[in-house]
Amino acid sequence: MQLYNTLSAKEREVLIEEAGKDRLTISFYKYAHIGNPEIFRNHLFINWDALEVLGRIYVAKEGINAQLSVPAENFEAFKTHLDTITFLENVRLNIAIEHDNKSFLKLKVKVRNQIVADGLNEGTFDVTNKGVHVDAEMFNQLIEDPDTVLVDMRNHYESEIGHFKNAITPDVDTFRDSLDIIEKDLADHKEDKKLVMYCTGGIRCEKASAYYKHKGFKQVYQLEGGIIEYTRQVGDKNLENKFLGKNFVFDHRRGERISDDVIANCHQCGNPCDTHVNCANEACHLLFIQCEECAKVMDNCCSDDCKEIHALPFEEQKELRKGKVVSNKIFKKGRSEVLKFKK
């Protein structure tokens, strides 16, 4: 029985092009008690592989966090399968605003200790004692209240290209880094201010809201469905859009345009730009912001050194990469010293 990918990303890309069918990019999460994550993981892989689902799915004893792509013609079958799983029946699906048939090229269902790496010890607080979920209309009202503190629960490279007006955007590399920083900075306002949080699809706020209530914040709110659902409701209900720029997404698209505002700059020349790329040198693969002009000049690389390596024959590049671990550099997310105009 097949429980893993048999096709490479390039092979899958060719099949998607040949099929010529529209695909939907979807994300969802659910906190639940899963007795045997490994068995559940295998169940999902078998059923979703048959539906040509592609994506990145994390399963843990605490629940599931899924970002995936499914052929539009198989969406109803996919939803029907979700509804056969008790805790996923009628789960809210965040459907992307901008679709890309190649947002994911493999189906990866992985068992993890947590569905979001937050570094929190759940045994010390009640994760079900969450903040108040608000829709886009209520969110817009709340963030205009002078007694509200609006906090972006995402990382620096996400908020750099897009965030809500007047939001606090912690300069952090990971979600876990932001939790203590926010509590410390807002320590004097635990009782007199409304703490309103948002993230991409809602999952980070789900546990953070319970954490902050445990830490003594009296009025805690979270944007239900995150920026993705907010954007959909703004369009459906003709509400004022208070989000500036792009929403960073964790697939090959790297971003969805929410407003026409470009609030970031190219990390190499400083001109207005909000397009994230990965350095073309496979031994680097650094995530950074690069405009079209710099992409041409730098051959899609982050530095002159990487440009030289990228120009070498493929086999020579492979030899240079042998035995080298570069994961720390990959996840600097625009922090590299070679970037002159980084945030």
Rank of each mutant, 00 (worst) to 15 (best):
G334V: 02
Q290A: 02
H189T: 06
L239D: 13
E52I: 01
Q222F: 10
F331K: 08
P272I: 02
Q114C: 06
G334I: 01
Q233H: 06
V338K: 04
K190M: 15
I228C: 07
H156C: 06
K61P: 00
P37H: 05
A77N: 13
E315N: 12
I258Y: 07
D192Y: 06
G119W: 08
D261K: 13
A136L: 08
V234I: 15
S27V: 07
A96S: 12
R335Y: 15
E158W: 03
A280S: 11
K324M: 13
I181D: 09
N101S: 10
G123L: 12
Q268W: 00
V127A: 11
V111W: 01
T231L: 11
G245C: 04
F331S: 10
V116A: 09
K343G: 05
F331P: 01
L244W: 09
L223F: 13
I57E: 08
V220W: 07
N74T: 04
I289W: 00
I309D: 03
I168N: 06
E319H: 08
P313R: 14
R56S: 12
D173F: 04
A32G: 10
K218S: 10
D180R: 07
I228H: 05
K207N: 08
F250D: 12
G323W: 11
L93S: 10
I289T: 06
V132K: 15
T86S: 15
E206I: 04
G35R: 04
R254F: 14
N65P: 02
S178P: 06
F78W: 13
I161F: 02
F139I: 04
M153F: 09
K322H: 13
C273D: 13
N65H: 02
Y157N: 03
D305Q: 12
N140D: 13
R56Q: 13
L150A: 10
A210L: 04
V172I: 14
V59D: 01
P272N: 09
E62H: 01
D261H: 15
A72T: 12
A280C: 04
K21S: 12
K106N: 09
E308I: 06
F45I: 05
L195Y: 13
K79Y: 15
K333S: 06
F175N: 02
K329V: 08
Q67N: 11
V132R: 14
I39G: 02
K184M: 14
D188S: 15
L68W: 04
V326E: 05
G334L: 05
L286R: 01
T84Q: 12
K332N: 12
V249L: 09
F288Y: 15
R321C: 10
E76C: 08
N241Q: 08
Y212S: 09
K106G: 05
D145S: 09
H156G: 01
I330D: 00
H252S: 11
K190F: 14
E293N: 15
E183K: 13
D145A: 09
L312D: 07
R176Q: 14
N278V: 02
W48A: 03
E191N: 14
N238G: 15
A96K: 01
E308H: 10
A66Q: 04
M153C: 14
D152P: 05
K307F: 07
V220K: 11
A295F: 00
C273P: 01
I161P: 00
K324G: 03
L244N: 14
R204T: 06
D100H: 09
G216I: 07
E224P: 00
E62D: 14
K307E: 09
I258H: 05
K242T: 03
F40Q: 07
I143V: 15
I228W: 02
Y58N: 04
